[in-house]
Computed example of a mutant assay.
Amino acid sequence: MIVFKTPDEVSLMAQASHVVAEVLELLKEKVAPGITTDDLDRMAEEAIRGRGAIPAFKGYRNYPKTLCASVNEQVVHGIPSKRRLKEGDIIGLDLGAIVSGFYGDSAVTVPVGVASSEALRLIQITEESMYRGIAKAVVGNRLSDVSHAVQSHVEQAGFAVVTEFVGHGIGRQLHEEPQVPNYGRPGQGPRLQVGMVLAIEPMVNMGSSAIRILEDRWTAVTQDGRWSAHFEHTIAIQPNGPARILSQLSH
């Protein structure tokens, strides 16, 4: 069942999402060769708590950390560790926060130092595909119009969308209905309505879409070892015009 949010609830979600956006900006500035993913995790937790919010991921289904830090062939849910980032790596930073019982969720992928042109193109296409999806998140459209916009942009660029993981509704729970796949035919699924708040999050692979889960039961990696990128915004469907992106700093 889709839980519709009141304007006051959307406002609280905007506060949570704003915390996430601020902390992701801070982390992006700290990403550099030599830093460990544990270092980034500690900064993330401190920064979230310092803003009066609660880390959303720590303890969620026994996840041990605040940040998901996915490097290179890691698709999502990379657990921070003593791994040091190297020049030319890429890293997906996925973060959530809770304010007054409501969740915000966002992710970015950034290069470490100077990355290859292919890696930068993967990052660019993944981010663009998220915004193509968000552009379709308007009243009266169907949910799969969002999904189709993501998939078509990715595949035109010669990359592949991950199908095992999807975007989602969000609110008092981190994951609510509806699921928001990053693939599909347009014109399917529920109509988008005011009060729906969604996390749109394409995960895009350079090579095959196939993934596998490591023994830690969290980290998803590409089966072919090629690299992957991930972007995510929390958005609210508006009565008129484009969706409001809650997890960007201009809001």
Rank of each mutant, 00 (worst) to 15 (best):
K5S: 05
K5L: 00
T6I: 08
P7R: 02
P7H: 03
S11F: 12
L12G: 02
Q15H: 09
A16F: 03
A16R: 04
S17V: 07
V19P: 06
G34H: 02
T36L: 03
L40E: 04
A44D: 03
E45N: 02
R49N: 01
G50L: 10
G50R: 10
R51L: 15
R51E: 12
R51Q: 14
G52L: 06
P55C: 12
R61S: 11
R61W: 12
K65L: 06
L67C: 07
S70F: 03
V71C: 00
E73C: 05
V76H: 04
K82T: 11
L85N: 00
E87F: 10
G88I: 11
D89Y: 06
I90H: 05
I90N: 06
L93C: 08
L95Q: 01
G101C: 05
D105Q: 09
S106Q: 08
V110Q: 07
V112F: 01
G113H: 08
A115G: 13
A119E: 14
L120S: 04
Q124L: 11
Q124K: 15
T126A: 15
S129M: 15
A135Q: 08
R142I: 05
S144P: 03
D145C: 09
A149F: 00
Q151S: 12
E155R: 13
V161K: 10
T163E: 13
G171V: 04
L174H: 10
H175N: 09
E176A: 02
V180Q: 12
G187E: 09
G189T: 04
G189Y: 04
Q193W: 04
G195Y: 00
M203R: 14
N205C: 15
S209C: 06
A210Q: 15
I211H: 01
I213E: 00
E215Q: 09
E215F: 05
W218C: 03
W218G: 00
Q223P: 06
G225W: 02
R226H: 13
W227L: 15
A229M: 12
E232W: 08
I235N: 09
A236R: 04
I237L: 05
P239S: 05
N240I: 03
N240W: 01
P242Q: 14
L249T: 04
S250P: 02
